[in-house]
Amino acid sequence: MSSFPHLLQAILTIQLDFSLCKVSIVIAKYLALYTIIYVVEKLLVLLRDGRKLLGILRSFDQFANAVLEGACERVIVGDLYCDIPLGLYVIRGENVVLIGELDLEREELPPHMTRVSAVEIKRAQKAEQDATDLKGSMRKRMEFLDLD
């Protein structure tokens, strides 16, 4: 038997589906403390490799393992961004840096950013990667000059 149910006991889950936002209310018993978790429509999870996942939090535990429903990855290159749909994701807690509640009233991104297609963002990502690679190789070649 796993010790999980002893530490975290989901006692009650109420799910309300409004036309615009899905809100679930989970009353969980966590280390004898009752916590009420509101699972709001959108959540931003920042991973250790710098990736940003957005989705609806469906479950979590004491290690910050989390289940995201309707997850998508937000790729940002300069002023361009793209949400690549991924589906249902289980995230291992050790890879989580930050979990943020997205404010539905506010814009998620600064107004100057434009949404592009997945193909375009891949191209932009590659261009950026090539630019940094080039910068790195130039630096290596100039090392004898003793920069810095």
Partner: peptide, 29 residues
Amino acid sequence: YPHMTGEQDAGNDLGLRLSVRNCFIRGSV
């Protein structure tokens, strides 16, 4: 870090306010 910043918040010289207002940070990071 544009992914966490929302619209400009007037009168806040410390910078932009997040579209993420409340967040959980894992202790190990």
